[in-house]
């Protein structure tokens, strides 16, 4: 199997972290399984060639992704089954995209969207069409951003009651702050430089005590969120997820 992954910078004014294109080529048509874990990003997919089936074990559903689709934040793992040859374009959108999205953004869903008017020939054209669409349709749901760069709550929310804030989170992000924080906690562990070779520090040395009480706590949350133990996770190959995650960690972070 030959895999290529291209990346292009996004546009922060539209909450686009980056654009990407992945190509999977095999000698004969086959299926490739990819494990997707929860992340604090929205992903827009355009399937140029091939098929993607999504298995959601938590919701016990199985369906083909439409050609253009927006993946909202999921709080549980997903399995994507790619049929090769596959050419897939995508735009990774940061959390604050939800604040300017023109529709409701429920969690754990794939929203049918048509952001592209024409079939793009390359990543440049895909990026141009997505940016144009967002520029035209962007709608501010709130007067100011809810979250700061470091995931802190913006000052203007301080005067609201906890109940009203819960409603705001649900309306904007489709999930509670606690659910968002749980996903962030797992990634605060993953985005470290971990080296689990023998004779090297063990997982426990990478635990942030402000986030996880102990290793069983990490293992429990990690398994719930990803379906794997931390060590199983690094061995598992997730062609698309690994690349997207790595690209996201190495981007300048935005909420």
């Amino acid at each position: 199997m030959k895999i290529s992954f291209e990346k292009q910078p996004g546009d922060a004014s539209y909450a686009i972290s980056f654009f990407w294109k992945i190509t999977l080529e095999t000698e004969s048509p086959t299926v490739v399984t990819d494990h997707f874990i929860p992340e604090l990003f929205y992903d827009y997919f355009f399937i140029k060639e091939g098929k993607i089936k999504c298995l959601d074990k938590t919701l016990k559903s199985k369906f083909d992704l439409p050609q253009q689709v927006l993946k909202s934040i999921h709080a549980h793992p997903l399995i994507f089954v790619f049929s090769t040859p596959l050419i897939l374009y995508g735009a990774r959108l940061s959390l604050n995209f939800a604040e300017s999205f023109w529709e409701e953004m429920p969690m754990n869903t794939f929203l049918n969207q048509t952001w592209l008017k024409n079939n793009p020939e390359d990543l440049d054209e895909f990026a141009r069409q997505v940016t144009n669409c967002l520029a035209m349709r962007k709608t501010r749901k709130l007067p100011c951003p809810m979250l700061s760069m470091d995931f802190g709550e913006s000052d203007w929310l301080a005067s609201y009651s906890p109940r009203h804030k819960r409603r705001l989170y649900k309306t904007v992000f489709g999930m509670s702050r606690k659910e968002l924080q749980n996903i962030r906690n797992v990634h605060s562990f993953l985005e470290q430089t971990c080296n689990f070779a023998s004779e090297n520090p063990r997982i426990i040395h990478y635990l942030n005590p402000d986030v996880f009480y102990d290793q069983p706590h990490l293992n429990h949350i990690f398994k719930k969120m990803t379906g794997f133990s931390p060590v199983e996770y690094i061995e598992a190959s997730s062609v698309l997820q690994d690349n997207l995650m790595s690209a996201s960690y190495n981007e300048v972070s935005s909420p």
């Binding site: 470290q192 080296n195 690094i234 061995e235 598992a236 190959s237 690994d242 790595s246 190495n250």
Partner: peptide, 18 residues
Amino acid sequence: FNESIKWKNCLVYGTTKN
């Protein structure tokens, strides 16, 4: 082998598995 970056900065070599 296909190359990819796992987590933040570990280069991995894999086929259908790392």
